[in-house]
Design a protein around this nucleic acid. Structure first.
Length: 353
DNA sequence: AATTCGGGGTG
DNA sequence: CACCCAGAATT
């Protein structure tokens, strides 16, 4: 039996009943694919339900404010996906009469849609014979065919894409593509793959050669940057505070946060007090008080954020102040959401600080 | 060709 | 702790 036939049979027996598998509506397929980029099904699933409920059609999403979209996306990470999702919804509504392109080339022109996602939508929604190559597919193909090229090298990317095209079943492309990914996610797992019960175990190259634990091969390892952030919870007599949209490049673009002082190392209270006196301008700043008792190290893929939150009481009303009670309405990074929840909602922790 | 975009689950 | 996740965009 062929490779693709075994994948299809396995999928028929083991597939999970996920909501985007009940339809071929390109809007829903597209939404699910954007949500699931670099994201596990279990983590993305509740967000899919939320988005479909709030935005049943692409027009509903196009009509929304970006801030509303970011708020719904809050907690999922890689927020450029949300911004691009919103931008593409508007493109589809305004320039495409609400209909998604039905082929790989035209899908690729839309923001947030790269080679993988274009192939996924073209095949799953429109039945086009396009192979998908995600992290799961890299693993299954590398092991089964014994490919030792690094999956994150240009040669590797090209080779795996061509290999995937050669072995796909274009007659059953919807189930084949989803089945191959599902097989990688549930059976041919990164660690402890279940080779004993694998339908491919009599012809898997890695299994015969003892390479299951060394394939696939990956090249670049990520370097982590250490950063030191001091967030300022400036509070005026009316319990208003300063809250700003994060602009420019870098993490958390267009999300909200408190003003902050960044240093190249852990900063002392006296030095910070000096900085704060400058940045708050002519406001009289009383004593700074560190709010968090324990060290906060917020870990991202490429950054370790060493964070302190400081109470900065000021003696008169802030013209740009926002009521503390309304902070929860803004889209914020998890780090800020956790702070608000811990110190500003269940608030007695703050009074003890 | 390398880096940089989050956050959470896993072993 | 390191690794991984239905990758894309930028440099």
């Amino acid at each position: 039996m062929s490779f693709s036939r075994k994948i299809l049979d396995w999928y028929e027996e083991h597939k999970r009943p996920l909501p985007w598998r009940q339809t071929s509506d390109p809007y829903k397929i597209w939404l699910s694919e954007i949500l699931l980029q670099q994201t596990r099904v279990a983590q993305g699933l509740p967000y899919y339900e939320k988005f479909i409920t709030h935005f049943p059609t692409v027009y509903d999403l196009a009509r929304a404010d970006e801030e509303t979209v970011l708020k719904l996306w809050q907690g999922l990470g890689y927020y450029s996906r949300a911004r691009n999702l919103h931008a593409t919804a508007r493109t589809i509504a305004e320039d495409y009469e609400g209909r998604f392109p039905d082929n790989h080339r035209d899908l690729m022109r839309l923001k947030g849609i790269g080679d993988y996602t274009a192939s996924a939508i073209a095949s799953i929604s429109f039945g086009r014979p396009e192979p998908v190559v995600d992290g799961n597919v890299y693993r299954v193909l590398a092991r089964y065919f014994g490919v030792e090229l690094a999956i994150d090298s240009p040669k590797g990317v090209k080779y795996f894409k061509e290999l995937a095209r050669e072995v796909m079943d274009m007659e059953h492309i919807r189930d084949y593509n989803q089945g191959l990914m599902e097989f990688g996610a549930l059976h041919c797992k990164p660690k402890n793959p279940e080779c004993e019960t694998c339908p491919l175990n009599n012809s898997c190259h890695a299994l015969q050669k003892g390479q299951v634990s060394t394939l696939p091969v990956k090249g670049n390892k990520t370097r982590v940057r250490e950063r030191f952030l001091n967030y300022l919870f400036v509070r005026d007599p009316l319990n208003r505070t300063l809250f700003r949209k994060r602009e420019g490049r870098g993490i958390w673009q267009n999300l909200y946060e408190f003003p902050f002082v960044e240093a190249d190392r852990e900063i002392e209270k006296a030095a910070l007090q000096k900085e704060v006196a400058i940045s708050i301008g002519d406001f009289r700043v009383k004593d700074l008080v560190r709010i968090n008792n324990n060290k906060i190290i917020h870990k991202l893929s490429h950054q370790h954020l060493h964070v302190n939150f400081w109470m900065v009481p000021v003696d008169r009303e802030l013209p740009e102040g926002i009521p503390v009670g309304s902070l929860k309405e803004y889209p914020v990074p998890v780090l800020i959401a956790d702070f608000i929840e811990k110190y500003l909602v269940n608030s007695n922790a703050l009074e003890n600080a």
